[in-house]
């Protein structure tokens, strides 16, 4: 009987904290099953072994912040049948996209004593800004169950079942008390995509936007609501400008409070 060849999975890293690819290793109960279903062909954080491309599925973590990365992502794309970008860095530029708003030379001076040694682009941008991306998983970090769902869906030739609605819907479903209505705590839940598992509100904290803008974000209305709650302009700007600072809806709203 002919043995069906297992799909080859590759995991790539660009500018990031490693937290999203770590979610694959954090699937403690499922890791050995995943490793049984696919050939892990390239995953530097976990193995020295490397199989040559092409790859059936590439998971790409991190944003593009250097000329080398801008070049490398094109090579990854060429070798990959299906490319999934994972996490806020890969889908929106990440926290390091804060440099898009400032003078990078000044940034380098703030961290390094010999700026001439540093080679960096003036921006941090999403993978989609450089190459075609087949699917995006949001989150800072991504949710490991969404990652398993995406891999599973691909292996079975279906579209991943990942909700695009807001965090607000999750709170209603879970019966969580609205932190903004009940406690006056600023919350990005109305404009942030669900996916974290309803975390912050269940800890009496306002959502701070790890999963980026949802499918229909009314950021202007929320910005006005924050102002009515006596948040100052700078605080509103910073609230929209964090881990998904360069996601279009969040970027525009933060700029409205410059």
């Amino acid at each position: 009987m002919a043995v069906q060849k297992k799909p080859k999975l590759a995991v790539w890293k660009f500018s990031s904290c490693d937290g999203c690819q770590l979610q694959l290793l954090s699937c403690e109960d499922e890791l050995l099953q995943v490793a049984g279903a696919v050939d892990i062909a390239y995953f530097l954080e976990a193995t020295r072994a490397e199989l040559p491309g092409p790859y059936d599925v590439s998971l790409v973590e991190g944003s593009v912040t250097t000329p080398e990365e801008a070049e490398r992502i094109r090579k990854v794309r060429k070798q990959s049948k299906f490319l999934i970008s994972i996490g806020a860095c890969a889908t929106a530029g990440g926290i390091q996209a804060l440099k898009n708003y400032k003078d990078v030379d000044g940034f380098i001076d703030a961290v390094y004593t010999n700026p001439e040694y540093i080679e960096t682009l003036t921006t941090s941008t999403a993978i989609r800004d450089h190459v075609d991306v087949d699917f995006e998983l949001r989150g800072c970090p991504i949710n490991k169950y969404q990652l398993l769902e995406a891999i599973n869906a691909l292996l079975n030739g279906r579209k991943p079942n990942i909700p695009l609605h807001s965090q607000c819907i999750e709170c209603k479903r879970a019966g969580s008390v609205c932190v903004m209505v009940a406690n006056g705590t600023p919350c990005l839940g109305p404009v942030t995509q669900a996916g974290c598992g309803n975390l912050c509100p269940s800890f009496t904290r306002g959502c701070y936007g790890c999963f980026g803008p949802n499918d229909t974000p009314n950021t202007a209305a929320l910005g006005k609501q924050f102002a009515d709650m006596d948040m100052d302009e700078r605080s509103i700007k910073h609230f929209f400008r964090s881990f998904n600072a360069n996601a279009s809806a969040f970027r525009k709203e933060s700029e409205a409070h410059e």
Binding site: T65, E69, I95, K99, K102, F107, V111, I118, S242
Partner: peptide
């Protein structure tokens, strides 16, 4: 590893944001 300039991002942010950033 590409530099990510955390010390620079933090300038101007309120103290309470430091743990998450």
């Amino acid at each position: 590893e590409p530099p990510r300039f955390f010390e620079a991002f933090l300038q101007g942010r309120i103290y309470s944001e430091a743990p998450d950033i």
